[in-house]
Design a protein around this nucleic acid. Structure first.
Lengths: 269, 269
DNA sequence: CGTGTTTATCGTCAGGGAGACGACTATGAT
DNA sequence: ATCATAGTCGTCTCCCTGACGATAAACACG
């Protein structure tokens, strides 16, 4: 290696971008914000921002998450003290193609956040510049889960009605795709799907999370056997609820186990 | 978000660090280089260097890999045209703690490379400033595989004889640990273990790779049944070899499958 | 040249987990 | 009362895995 040369330290800007996933109305959704300035002004993008001096990467991601959603992140290591409105946050990957930002050389450390369903997004006070979009809408994955699927309801807000919407700014479509794939694969072998649920939830609610993230229908009986039979996955919370209609369901809380062995199997094809 | 402020773009240096793993003498080994200048002068570290202007992150990692080992990286996407001396290379994670480099703010995008056994390391022409070290030696994992284990042989070179050696520079011990864990988990559900093997290899050689990476002993009969029974994992290469002694073994080549379903199960406990 | 050693490869058998699906329970809606 | 909806328990079969016996084909010795 030649001796160090000052010209060997080209300056970079470092940002964090967030793939914030949640499950809303049986569909996997992600938070997007409307860009207020060039480049890509007026286009939708993943939330994010510059890493500050003296700020750790994970801290920058957690700060952005709070700014955009109010969610407090908890580290993957320690179990969430109050799983209430905390989100799982982990590093996803880093994107640094030389031309990914026309202004300057920017390296973005993307993070993945999994959050329970939230009332409404807030974008630093600006209301309609942030929204939840279904992943299928952004990535062109057309394939509803079962009957009505993701395009149901009626208050779909803006965006294209049927087909794919305008693509995300920068390389954010790729980042989103990577984040979704990470989430889809990680709920297979970890208990991370509970991060999409409120502090107390039923087996059916957890199953609907899996169905929304994977985009498949699961057998309620086999799912129930699997999750209740995996030690440490779920612990009974005591009560029951009937908020889904039908027979009251037992309430559970996320157990201490983080790795599922054997894993949940995503149905093939 | 407040309007953009030039002070919000603190300058960073961006580097790539490499966790190059291989299997040598039944032990999982990684490439380390001796630092020639401060900080951590004289200490061992992972190979790496600064990302150049206009250079992609993956390209920088591939360039460093060639500089340090002569190995050409092939992307995970396309199958290696000639699996000869090509290495698997993928992004691992990014490390950017504010104080990880005392000189300046440095964000390092670590990459993981898996390579077949190589004759000898070369460090940009400097011979004895690079070496293969066993992962157990660097991370303090003491637990030989079966009989003699990793500390066998005699030409162990420099470094501490028995116990743990001097810790790696910077946060490279953490990076190495993360890379090893990635490799250990990824050979479970992918055919990546073949990246440790020469272009043609036997089932026994592949089994010894698994044993070295996981640090366990596997049943040869069940392993043989598993890998030969998984479609697309191995394709017969035609010949046989006896380079391991004993009955001649059939030669195989890595098949097209990249994901193993069901996965190879790492024995617990 | 036989014997032991080493490695490869084929078979067998029992146990566990998962998919498919039947049956029953408990609530609200009509 | 009846139906629709959801939850929960059981059963059955198939496949995979782990444990392990047995055979095959090379080499190293005497």
């Amino acid at each position: 290696m030649p001796p160090y040369d000052p010209s060997a330290y080209p300056p970079f800007a470092v940002t964090v971008d967030l793939v914030v996933l949640t499950v809303r109305r049986h569909a996997l959704c992600t938070l997007i914000v409307k860009r207020g300035e060039p480049p890509f002004q007026g286009r939708w993008a993943l939330p994010g921002g510059f890493v500050r001096e003296g700020e750790d990467l994970g801290a920058a991601a957690a700060r952005e998450l709070i700014e955009e959603t109010g969610l407090r992140a908890h580290d993957p290591g320690d179990p969430p003290p109050v799983p209430g409105n905390g989100a799982h946050l982990e590093q996803l990957a880093t994107y640094g193609a030389p031309d990914r930002d026309p202004r300057m050389r920017v390296v973005s450390v993307a993070h993945l956040a999994l959050a329970p369903d939230l009332p409404a997004p807030r974008a630093g006070g600006d209301a309609n510049s942030a929204r939840w979009a279904t992943v299928g809408e952004l990535l062109g994955e057309d394939g509803p889960v079962g009957g009505e699927g993701a395009t149901g309801g009626g208050t779909e807000g803006e965006g294209g009605p049927g087909g794919g919407a305008e693509p995300l700014a920068f390389d954010h479509a790729q980042i989103l795709a990577d984040g979704v794939e990470r989430a889809r694969s990680k709920i297979e072998y970890s208990s991370l799907a509970t991060a999409f649920c409120p502090p107390e939830f039923t087996v059916g609610e957890l199953r609907r999370v899996y169905e929304a993230v994977w985009g498949v229908a699961l057998d309620p009986r086999n799912f129930h056997r699997k999750v209740t039979g995996t030690p440490g996955f779920l612990v009974p919370a005591g009560g029951t609820t009937t908020r889904q209609g039908g027979r009251p369901a037992q309430l559970f809380r996320a157990g201490g186990a983080t790795l599922l062995n054997p894993p949940m199997l995503r149905p093939e094809v």
